[in-house]
Design a protein around this nucleic acid. Sequence first.
DNA 1: ATTTAAATTGTTATAATATAACATTATGTA
DNA 2: TACATAATGTTATATTATAACAATTTAAAT
Lengths: 133, 133
Amino acid sequence: MKTMHKEHTLTKNQQIIFDLIDKSPEPMKAYSILFNVQKKGIKAPPQVYRALDKLVEIGKIHKIESRNAFIACHNSSCRVAKATAFSICEICEKVTEISSAGLSKYLANFKDKDGMKYSKYNLEFFGLCKKCR
Amino acid sequence: MKTMHKEHTLTKNQQIIFDLIDKSPEPMKAYSILFNVQKKGIKAPPQVYRALDKLVEIGKIHKIESRNAFIACHNSSCRVAKATAFSICEICEKVTEISSAGLSKYLANFKDKDGMKYSKYNLEFFGLCKKCR
DNA sequence: ATTTAAATTGTTATAATATAACATTATGTA
DNA sequence: TACATAATGTTATATTATAACAATTTAAAT
């Protein structure tokens, strides 16, 4: 029997906001999202942040912590936000999600000096992208 | 000849703020720092943020991005903030800087699918610390 | 010692990011 | 239906961070 994952049917606000982020070629900030969805009836910050929180929780989007911005997850296996890695260009601010089996394996198995393993991580690499080099 | 590193003599505000963070057992937030140094004459946010920016730049402190908080660097080799890793307890919020030669070597040499190497990274692990398990 | 340039500091105001609190409406289920 | 739960709407406010410019200090050059 295959493991079943609950399909998270997105609510109206979640869907509107996810679609917007998903179509964006770059990470979107909360107030930029707000501005873009006001025509659809989402008028106040809490509505945006609530949807963002939920979307992050179920792994549909990720927060780029160093930029306070959000991108859609393109890593189809990612149902929960627990192991994320990104590359960030310090010039054009392009952000790409890294999916490297080697990297995730290494980090998922990483133990610190006390032998402690961690359930979750977020890694952000910085440098120059191809275009900006 | 040994490589010489410029000694960054801290300015008054930088020293006051570094001392406070260095003595703190936990990451400090900017406005908590501000509150704590007002008796020493540092009265406004820009004074705090300027010192923080400089201290981060020269590697004396690190910013914990997921917490918007700052901790002193206890990794003596760390003169520039370019390769940082932390463990964060999701219950008590204890933060520890990880210094693992293996980890830093792995990440410093990591190449993405396009063969791109990165000059800088920040890694945050989340889990439960010993006490909280 | 005096002048100059650069860095640092001081100050006010405001921008940007995020949440608290509570009222209302919609949805699913007993 | 009636009840519980989740989602939404709304106002206000908390938190984090920077812009802009004036004043002062420091270091170096003359």
